[in-house]
Design a protein around this nucleic acid. Sequence first.
DNA 1: AACTTACTTTCGAAAGC
DNA 2: GCTTTAAAAAGTAAGTT
Lengths: 202, 208
Amino acid sequence: MPTGGQKLSQIEARSEAGEARPTAKIENIVATVSLDQQLDLRLIERSILTVEYNPEQFPGLVYRLDEPKVTALIFKSGKMVVTGAKSTKDLIEAVKKIVRNLKKHGIPIYGRPKVQIQNIVASANLNVCVDLERAALTLENSMYEPEQFPGLIHRMDEPRVVLLIFSSGKMVITGAKREEEVYEAVNKIYEKLKKLRAIRPC
Amino acid sequence: RLRRLQAKLRATTSIEKNIEQAAREITRLIEALNLPRSVIDTAMMIYRQAAEKGLVRGRSLESMAAAAVYAACRIRGIPRSIDDIAELVKGGRKEVARCYRLIVRELRLRMPIVDPVRYVSRITSALRLSPAVEKRAAEILIRARKMGLTAGKDPAGLAAAAIYIAALELGERRTQKEIAAAAGVTEVTVRNRYKELVQKLNITLPAQ
DNA sequence: AACTTACTTTCGAAAGC
DNA sequence: GCTTTAAAAAGTAAGTT
């Protein structure tokens, strides 16, 4: 078990004994932001030429920021969805930049934006291969349909996340609301696969 | 209390009528796919359980019936892809797949993992290959699975590659194009699987 | 045959059809 | 349910060169 509080991404892939250790990386954070005010999307569309806005197709206005590289969907209710951030810091920085930019272009913003993380997507590597057939037969709440998708889909109860596990030992974790849940899920699935003897050397 | 009884009776009648109609649809699909009659019983049992759990509400009967047939084929080890079945209904592959996942999850069905060996005879017979090729292809697939080469790969592609190799070994060569068409995968997939099997199983093909 | 691009699966929120 | 966004995993597909 890794040292408490330390992020898996900072932990070495292998201990001195040579035992494989999982590594994880946050790939995408999806968050909602509330500005608590109505917005005139047509005004934003006229002021900022780089946005996309097709209300017939989708009610949100698409705003892309280069640094941090995120995409925001802005709605007339003053709520938005920000996707693409690789860290909480990037997310906060991006929201500040977007609000600052709107103001700079003459769109008045009154209150402080309220940010809520809705989903965290991460990739991880157990650094050992997984016997998917064995895992599929012994792991609860899992689905493995190689005709349709090469990964085993596992719905974990606690933390409540979904994992896409591949035979290479690499995986995708999604549905997490806190970064800690990602590391918790990776450690938990690693221990469980070991217990089920569904781990094999690569 | 009479009202409740009537409502319950009405609901039961409604479900029974739905199941009757589904039985006709399931029979149609099974005949169109040339599946053994025994699959009907399994598919009907699955559909009935799904209907009784209320999984049919708001979903097309056609797609749910197709999903039940696909699940029945899986349980009975009959090699039919979800596309083979989905192309016979208007909902499309995506909806049939969604219904199938719903059925498996809600009824907590333990689906056996698709065995590529099951696809072999279907492909070899379409190409008029000998039983010897069939037997050899199965051996290759069993060895491949033991070595962990089949995880995550499309069983049809694996079967196609094993047959390609077995046919070459036994002097009954078929082109990758012919085999790919019979298996319902692309030539690129047959080639990729074939290369990996030959390399990792140390298979030596006859010269030329 | 290589490359490129693109689609399969998973997740969540937004507003409206 | 759908529409739109982003991102990863590994396999398969399709179009070019």
